[in-house]
């Protein structure tokens, strides 16, 4: 493997002003299975592809509830995700305790981003090896954020992270302008279409390998009583959503002109995972 002089720890800038250890941590995110997030004017949803290590193993959890109004999907090192999500929960509780107010989502995401930055500047640490998609609802409506180990957080209309996420991004970039007016069912369908793009050739989305996290009023197909708060749908309850998916070609052509799919990036940096 290629090695260079400036990549052995995170307190060293390369002559170009780059931080190689931080860039490698972004690769760790791409080792994780994909997650997709998108948002309408009423809802925010995250969808995750779960992996299992074998026939006898269960599928790895992809989503965590932080508070009633915030949930995350992760890609990368699960243990790092647990550290950060515990921190987020503490922040959320702190806000309830001190101000009697659900923590504003942007501040919660900025808090973990600022925390992650420290790990890019001090000797003897490594940057976190996990990326988040954070959805939440607060005073200013539904939101979707991406958190990355470089210590940044950005707000998006739609985003994907993890293995082969570029393919999902291509789908999202093609359709994102429609998301804002979608109802929940259509929003989830778009999400599933995007998530499907990250699958390997012979794989498909099933009720076992797919998780859906939702914030916003319940869809008609959801169990009565669910709604508004963050909830994770897994197993049987998502079969209806899976069935509503359109075949691949048709899904891409959701747009008026079924133009050639947007060009893939010149260098495909995504890591191919064997499952």
């Amino acid at each position: 493997m290629f090695r260079n002089t400036y990549d052995s720890d995170n307190t060293v800038f390369s002559p170009q002003g780059r931080l190689h250890q931080v860039e490698y941590s972004l690769e760790a995110v791409k080792q994780g299975s994909a997650a997709v997030g998108l948002r309408s004017k009423t809802h925010a949803v995250i969808l995750g592809l779960k992996r299992s290590t074998g026939e006898l193993a269960s599928y790895q959890q992809k989503m965590y509830r932080i508070d009633d109004h915030v949930g995350i999907a992760i890609a990368g090192l699960t243990s790092d995700a647990r550290v950060l999500s515990n921190f987020m929960r503490q922040q959320a509780m702190g806000s309830k305790m001190v101000f009697n107010r659900p923590v504003p989502v942007n501040r919660l995401v900025s808090a973990i981003a600022d925390k992650a930055q420290v790990n890019t500047q001090e000797y003897g640490r490594r940057p976190y090896g996990v990326g988040f998609l954070v959805i939440g609802h607060d005073h200013t409506g539904p939101h979707l954020y991406e958190f990355s180990p470089s210590g940044t957080s950005f707000e998006y209309y739609a985003m994907s992270i993890g293995a082969r996420s570029q393919s999902a991004k291509t789908y999202l970039e093609k359709h994102y302008e429609k998301f804002v007016d979608c109802d929940l069912t259509d929003l989830i369908r778009h999400g599933l279409h995007a998530l499907r793009e990250t699958l390997q050739q012979d794989k498909e989305l099933t009720i076992n390998n797919t998780s859906i996290g939702i914030i916003g009023p319940a869809a008609s197909s959801e169990a009565p009583g669910s709604g508004e708060s963050f909830r994770i749908l897994e197993g049987e309850p998502i079969s209806g959503f899976l069935q509503s998916m359109l075949p691949k070609e048709e899904a891409m052509g959701f747009a008026p002109a079924p133009a050639a799919p947007a060009a893939a990036p010149a260098s495909d940096q995504d890591v191919q995972m064997s499952e």
């Binding site: 305790m97 001190v98 101000f99 009697n100 107010r101 504003p104 942007n106 501040r107 607060d138 005073h139 200013t140």
Partner: peptide, 19 residues
């Protein structure tokens, strides 16, 4: 400094003062 549209109202001020 947050400048994000989340302002403190009487409920939040009162909770803060009580803590």
């Amino acid at each position: 400094t947050a400048a994000d549209g989340h302002s403190l109202g009487p409920v939040e001020i009162h909770e803060y003062l009580s803590r």
